[in-house]
Computed example of a mutant assay.
Amino acid sequence: MRPTVLVLLVRLVLLVPLIRLVSLAAGDDFFAAGGTSLTAVRALARIRERVGGELGLADLMEDPTPVGLAARIGTASPHH
């Protein structure tokens, strides 16, 4: 999956519905935009279901932006 497509997927499909925003820019902080630890866990589960890879809560805490998560998805090991 191309990086740009992955960023859009993370933004529009996986994160925005969880924090009930109309939009989330690629560089917006998930937690500053209203994300909580519970929605973070849900977002990570959605990411695993849709694109694979094993991202943990630490990944989201270290870089809580859609572009940061997309970069980490690209380097995460696939799940079994």
Rank of each mutant, 00 (worst) to 15 (best):
R2V: 08
R2I: 07
R2A: 08
R2K: 12
V5H: 13
L6K: 00
V7F: 09
L8G: 14
L9Q: 13
R11P: 03
L12V: 11
V13F: 07
L15Q: 04
P17A: 11
I19V: 12
I19L: 15
R20I: 00
V22D: 14
V22Y: 08
S23C: 06
L24F: 02
L24G: 02
A25T: 11
G27K: 06
D28G: 01
F30K: 09
F30W: 10
F31M: 07
F31G: 08
A32Y: 00
A32I: 05
A32D: 11
A33R: 11
G34A: 07
L38H: 12
L38F: 10
T39H: 03
T39C: 01
T39V: 01
T39K: 04
A40N: 07
A40M: 03
R42I: 05
R42T: 09
R42L: 13
A43G: 02
R46D: 07
R48P: 01
E49Q: 14
R50H: 11
R50C: 10
V51G: 07
V51C: 13
G52I: 07
E54G: 12
E54R: 13
E54K: 08
M61L: 14
P64I: 03
P66Q: 01
P66S: 08
V67S: 14
V67K: 06
L69G: 05
R72A: 12
R72K: 15
R72M: 09
I73W: 00
I73S: 00
G74K: 07
G74W: 03
S77F: 06
S77Q: 14
P78G: 01
H80W: 10
